[in-house]
Design a protein around this nucleic acid. Structure first.
Lengths: 207, 207
DNA sequence: GCTCATCCTGAACGGCGGTTCAGCGTACCG
DNA sequence: CGGTACGCTGAACCGCCGTTCAGGATGAGC
């Protein structure tokens, strides 16, 4: 049917990545189509060739980057063999580091933009809610696994997941904005502190 | 601290409030000078009469609203007489409710916008960092007070303050965005749960 | 070679919206 | 009652940027 192999899908992803990078660099409001085009060395018209409008592209880009982050975390989880290590991976992935992976835009940079935009973009809001729920379910699953293996004491894993996810978000904001009192290392320590408090069986508990 | 507001000063505050309302309603990127002017029934030119540019106005508006939030919380703290009640006030104030105070824009609505803008606006970033540090210091102070009075067990109040502030931010985001699994009531319960876990002396501790 | 779909672009368009400015009313003051 | 400073506006300006479109290039199939 088509005299030429369609490469639209890979090209679309290039543009989504370029858009993410532009948002991360220039900010959501200041990002122009020309910036996105520059990032892949193309003309502004190309962007509108693959996406119906700038607004649609931005929402798709934020969704795309969100998915990338969760998938990369899922990959990193492969190396962990017990619940404690797995939670450590999640925490580490949530800590904004200068450049964890080369080239790729770090997901947390775009979170404020995604939150701001979710307030008025229904599709982005839905995608964000779905991914966040999956993120918390992942935490809860690991906790349940740790409870079963005896690594953790019995807790309400669903509630803990919401609490940990929220704390990680809040801490990540501070780190990302360069708060002088909380950097990435401190963030990890504080998250681990909460984790120990909530999950570890207190030795002095029984007498 | 603040001298008697002159005529221009009160007008400036009107505009700042109008700008905050516009951002809350239309979103940071979609807010135009005309929207702000409409909110106070004035002409767009008036806005530029009191502020040098749109960008400067937006940063000032976000700073202003942030200050208002912290001051209103400080007022609400007057009614609390012990550490437990004071922390309850802080938590309650952090929960996004449909309309806690009539007319005024609820502060948490603007947080994502402030975070997004702080990434590139130095003055906003500085103000935000200062207010956040004050917020955590307030929490830590209350905790120290509770420790002294025997309400709480001895903990590192500074670390706890960062953790609680972060968790409140993260939970507030979910509530504000209408996450189906965490509304304002659930947020309060989860925050209180962390508070109990971290601060309350466990009754079953001694036997 | 010819045809045709796909990929991409330069250039132009259109209007939106921030900014400017000359000037009008009004209150205060001598 | 003139003068003046202030508060405010309507209207115009203008640059920017999202969007459109006609058409050029490229490569697959025949």
């Amino acid at each position: 049917m088509s005299p030429r192999p369609s490469l639209t899908e890979s090209r679309r992803q290039d543009i989504l990545a370029a858009a993410s990078a532009a948002i991360a660099e220039r900010g959501l409001c200041e990002t122009r189509i020309a910036d996105i085009a520059d990032n892949i060395g193309a003309s502004p018209a190309l962007i509108l060739y693959y996406f119906p409008s700038k607004a649609a592209l931005l929402t798709e880009a934020l969704i795309y980057q969100d998915q990338l982050f969760h998938e990369s975390v899922k990959d990193e989880l492969e190396g962990a063999h017990n619940a404690v290590e797995k939670l450590a991976v999640l925490i580490e992935a949530s800590c904004p580091r200068p450049s964890r992976t080369k080239g790729a835009t770090d997901g947390w940079t775009l979170w404020p933009a995604a939150w701001e935009m979710s307030r008025h973009d229904l599709s982005l809001a839905a995608a964000r809610a779905r991914l966040d729920e999956a993120w918390r379910a992942q935490i809860a699953g690991i906790v349940d696994e740790g409870i079963a293996s005896g690594e953790f004491r019995a807790v309400n894993s669903a509630e803990f997941a919401i609490q940990l996810a929220a704390m990680l978000d809040g801490l990540a904001i501070e780190v990302m904005l360069g708060d002088p009192t909380v950097d990435a290392d401190r963030m990890r320590d504080l998250a681990n502190g909460f984790l120990d408090l909530a999950l570890k069986t207190t030795v002095s508990d029984t007498t």
